[in-house]
Structure formats: C-alpha cells, structure tokens
Design a protein around this nucleic acid. Structure first.
Lengths: 228, 228
DNA sequence: CCAAAAGTGTTCTCGATACACCCATGT
DNA sequence: ACATGGGTGTATCGAGAACACTTTTGG
C-alpha cells in the first residue's frame, strides 16, 4: 500500500517515535461443512487480512475498513482479541488482533472464494498469524456455547439442521439432533418464519430467523463502543 | 512526565509517525471485605497505574514493570483486557489495558495503603479509566466463577471462610457456606495444610493451600506468552 | 455458660446427555 | 416402494440452590 520512500531511511519506521500499528483480522466462515478463515494472497504469501489504522479512527472501525479493503467482505461480527508488541528488523509494531465472523455463500459471492482457507487443511502462514488463528479458534469455540455468535455464520433465515451443521463444523464433533433442538427452543432465540424449504426428496424443513435475546450476547467484550 | 519542548511543536507527539503507547493496569485486591483497585495519586489526580512500554519489551513485561514503578506492587496475576485508540489534543495514543490481581495485607505493606480505592465508594477518575475499571470488574467477576483467579487475592495459606469472604467481596453478594465448601472440595483445588488457626473465642479453622489444577486456569487468555 | 465462628447432609430443580422411531417428500 | 433428511419424547445423571443444627474455642 505505502510506496517506498526515495530517501536514506533504511527501515520503514523510525524507532524514536511511536510504533507502527498493525490490525489483523481472523475472519471465520463456515463452508462445505467446515470452518474456514480468510487468508488472502498478497505477493505470493497468504496472510491474515491486515492494515494500518489511522490516528483519528477507532480500532473497531479500522478493523472493519481494513477487512473490507483487503477482502471485499463486510463483516457482521467483530471482536477484539489481543494486542502484542513485536520488535524486529522491520521496526517496532503493535499488532491488534480481531476475531470476525461472517456468513458467506459461494453462490452469491463466488469472487472471494479463493481467500477462504479450509481449516482442516495445513496452515502455511507466519508464526504470529498461526498463534492468532489458534487462539481465535479457541475463543470462537468457547463463545459458541454461551453466546449467539453462531447466527452470524448463517443467512438471515435457516433451518435447524443448518444451524446444527454450523455448530458441528466449528466444534468439529457431532451433536445429538433432539438435544440440540431442545436447547435452542428453550433458549428462546429462534422465531419460526412460517415458511418451509423444500429441498430434495424428503420432508421440507421449517425456516427460522434469529431472535435477539433480551440479555446481550457479548459477555466478555467491552460493553462500550471503541470511539475515539 | 514529558517536559514541554521549547520549539514550535504544539502537540507532544508528531502524528506522522506511530502513536504513543500507554499501558494501564486495573489492579484489584480485597481488603476489609471489599474489592479495591490501585489508584495512585499523581499531581492531585487519581489515575490507574500507567506508563509507556519500550519497543523491545513484551507488553506483559511492560505492564509488570509499570505497575512496580508506579505502585511498588509486584503483581501475581496479569491479563490483557483490551486496547483502544484515542486521538485528542494530546496526540494519538494507543491504550493497552490490563487486569491484575494481588493479595495485599495492610500489616505487611502499610505504605501502599493510600493507593487502594474502595470500590464501594465513588470513583472520581477520567472517562477512559472509568470504562476500563467497569469492564475489568465484569471480567473479574466472570472469571471468578470458572477459574482459580481468586487464589491470587489470598495469602499462600488461608481458611475456607477467608476464601468465601473473598468471593463475597468481589461478587457483592452472600454465598451459602455449605454449598461453597462443597464446590471447592469437589473442584479438588484445595490442599489441607494440617495446621489450624486459632483466632478468637470460637472453634479454630483449618488452613488450606491452593493446589494447582491439572487443567490450566486460563481459558480465555492467549495460551502463548507475549514475547517480542 | 455464653458468644462466635467452624464445620457438616439432605432434598429439589434444572440443564445436559443418551437413545430410536415416525413423517413428509421426490423419484 | 424406498431413500432421504425432518421432526419428536423419555429416562438418567450431575451441578447448583435452599435450608438448620452441632462443634470447638475464649472469655
């Protein structure tokens, strides 16, 4: 993005003043029954979507913008993960990591298909990216059990089987159909749309919509909005 | 801290390069049956312990150092909370907030008594500090229920009543003695020391020691160490 | 013997788990 | 008719909550 300067500076940063800031996003989606992350290719490398925030910008806003610019994706859920400080030959950098979650359908947006990496396959990324990805997976799995974050992985309207398949893809294990359904009925977060989906040679499924619960779904995220 | 420059720069930072970095620590302890936070006084203001990390330093290390320098306290548990970006007349700053927890006894370290603020009393701090404190309290309460973080609020050896009083102080509600004790026995995190404590005109209490559980107590914290 | 904190069991409810069959449709 | 996924109920177990009395000591 930044063009090389024509003067004598060897490093891209001058270490006397503040660090460079690097926002990275671990963006998840579920496709073909498996968890995927966005790993766009740049200069032959696959890296997490990343970029620099500007000074007047809240970090959450920057993360959204960076994600849009580097993948074309408008995310639906974004949460700060952690910040780390790295000092190497490229200078001092603060990396602020985000966890994001989107619904993505191959039909409607085939053009970004190549940015998605199936997490069942080998990850070939840098050490920092790998750590952030592993941590984000742990967090996403944990949040699945006590928040409604999973709905961001689904279209506005979905069947209970699709919801269950999403959970199974993230958790990488099979769940019991009856218990699963009972859980969500009890949680009172589903609203039947009344319509059905006729699919193949079998009984049609009822379609549901997510109904926001009264108590907010973000327990462990700052209750304020990161405004500058 | 930074003295005003004699030249034409109006802001303390030059916005062209990276931001200033500010590490703040919300440090908790329990005293007199109530949750307290460290709010040392500087220039008439009470602010969270804070300072700047250096470029070669991991953020966790910086937080420990800053806490030591600004309060004299060696913390026992420290965890990154969140990072936010603020751009005002003082320039652009990234604030990295930490949650810390210590055991503190008025007898052994009376000199730092004045830095502790009883959270039952009114908080008179800046807006950012207030947000961070509120968020840290939410997190601390949540973590109490599914981690062993509470042991960092206690001396190496303690009675079950002291443990319960610590929980009650943090949660601000009374707990049932029998259920409380059963819970900790079942959790298998206590080791009886065999000794007793004779206290007043009543039956002496057994002393316990914390016994590290096999599964680690940090679920939601990055599993890596923030090394540069 | 009295005050004061330490210590101890049982019952109930609720959420999580295990488990097997009928229903509606397309071909 | 049959294959395919959609949909349903019951029994069991364990964690958490409610609840009251006896024990040991110092004064």
């Amino acid at each position: 993005m930044t063009s090389p300067k024509p003067n004598t500076v060897t490093h891209t940063r001058q270490p006397a003043s503040g660090p460079a800031v690097d926002v990275r996003i671990v963006l998840f989606t579920v496709a073909h029954g498996a968890l995927h992350i966005a790993l766009p290719e740049a200069k032959g490398l696959r890296r997490l979507p990343h970029g620099e925030p500007t000074s007047g910008e809240a970090l959450d806003t920057a993360a959204r913008r960076i994600l849009r610019h580097s993948t074309g994706i408008h995310e639906q859920y974004l949460e700060q993960l952690s910040t780390l400080s790295v000092d190497d030959t490229a200078g001092w950098t603060l990396t602020v990591a985000y966890l994001g979650v989107v619904w993505w359908s191959a039909e409607s947006e085939p053009e970004v298909a190549s940015t998605w990496h199936d997490l069942r396959r080998r990850l070939d990324v840098g050490e920092t990216d790998r750590m952030l990805i592993h941590y984000a997976i742990v967090r996403l799995r944990a949040k699945l059990s006590y928040t409604t974050i999973a709905f961001h992985l689904l279209p506005p309207t979905f069947t209970l089987s699709e919801l269950q398949q999403t959970y199974e893809a993230v958790l990488e294990r099979r769940l019991d159909k009856r218990n699963f359904r009972r859980r969500f009925v009890a949680a009172n977060v589903l609203a039947a749309t009344g319509t059905q989906r006729r699919d193949g040679s079998h009984r049609p499924a009822l379609l549901y919509r997510f109904r926001a619960p009264h108590d907010r779904d973000s327990y462990l995220t700052p209750p304020w909005s990161d405004e500058a």
